[in-house]
């Protein structure tokens, strides 16, 4: 097969909804696009543990603390599923971490905001996990097999994340006036960053078209954002919280909510590294990665001495 035919056959294979597996031939750009997207997704899961971790020692009850620990443990697990999926494409874990530390690889900018009060933990579960899962439900149909299977696992596990967040918000919103104010403050601060998680408008998003053509992404940023808005606005109404958008309105004709303009300057500022917690998040990850170096070295030294090579045929 000459190379043009090869690309064409690959595209046809994708178009017929077949999935690509690690040992299949694939164009380099398809491989790189997946590595970039999956690793960004993995880094987001891992960095996303930090804003929630901030509240483990201050959770208001043992019940809340156990739930939060279990939730954060899941996020760490999600990071590991995704790193493993990325590694099937021929990149090592060390390279992936190196790309995070050098800034070459990104993570979701939403995790560069601080968690100021307990209701922020509710807002993260409800809005940030809610937005993430909207995207992830769609990604279950992504064309790369290992990524798709990781998404299935993650979506199943996510089912409690959003609920525990919504439960916190509902309790606080219907609690004392002070608790209600904390809940409102949390949604005021997290609503817009959650909407930005879907990325720029499709017209301004350079990579969306390749991703859609190869079915790595299955829906555009704006469509996913709209899905999230449509299901979340009524949930806010049920618990008596206001969406911080004076231009928000229901459009009877389209049967969708319409929102005011998103502050893309802020989005790009945070992506560039100028958000409130960017440097703290990265410094924390680098510090604890370095602190763990002796464990990796000891394990490698032990394996070398005892010749525990796991696979030999």
């Amino acid at each position: 097969m000459n190379s043009d035919n090869r690309f064409e056959a690959f595209q046809q294979y994708i178009d017929s909804e077949e999935k690509i597996e690690p040992k299949d031939w694939m164009p380099d750009e398809y491989r790189l696009h997946n590595i970039r997207q999956i690793s960004q997704h993995a880094h987001s899961e891992v960095i996303g543990m930090q804003p929630e971790g901030n509240w483990i020692t201050r959770a208001p009850s043992l019940r809340a603390k156990k739930i939060l620990l279990a939730k954060i443990q899941d996020e760490g697990g999600h990071g590991l599923y995704l790193y493993s999926a990325a590694e099937t494409l021929g990149i090592t874990r060390d390279e992936l971490i190196e790309q995070l530390h050098s800034g070459k690889a990104k993570y979701s900018s939403v995790f560069n905001y601080p968690t100021l009060n307990w209701a922020d933990i509710g807002a993260i579960g409800w809005l940030v996990d809610g937005a993430a899962v909207t995207n992830q439900l769609s990604l279950r149909r992504t064309s790369y097999g290992p990524y798709s299977r990781a998404m299935m696992r993650i979506c199943n596990e996510e089912s409690f994340h959003q609920r525990q967040g919504y439960e916190i918000m509902a309790k606080m919103a219907t609690g004392t006036p002070e608790q209600h104010a904390m809940a409102q403050s949390a949604i005021d601060r997290w609503w817009w960053p959650a909407l930005m998680m879907f990325g720029p408008h499709d017209n301004d998003s350079p990579r969306t078209s390749n991703g859609l053509r190869w079915k790595i992404k299955r829906a555009g940023n704006d469509e996913l954002r709209q899905r999230f808005i449509d299901k979340t606005v009524p949930q806010a109404e049920v618990i008596g919280l206001k969406i911080p958008d004076p231009r928000l309105r229901w459009n009877e004709e389209t049967q969708h909510y319409e929102i005011g303009p998103i502050n893309w300057d802020e989005f790009h500022r945070v992506v560039r590294g100028e958000g409130p917690c960017n440097s703290q998040r990265m410094a924390h990850h680098k510090h604890w990665h370095a602190e763990g170096a002796w464990v990796r070295e000891a394990a490698a030294a032990y394996a070398a001495r005892h010749n525990t090579n796991p696979v030999r045929v």
Partner: peptide, 9 residues
Amino acid sequence: EVPEGAKNI
């Protein structure tokens, strides 16, 4: 616990 009337959660 999901409050009454809340959907899609």
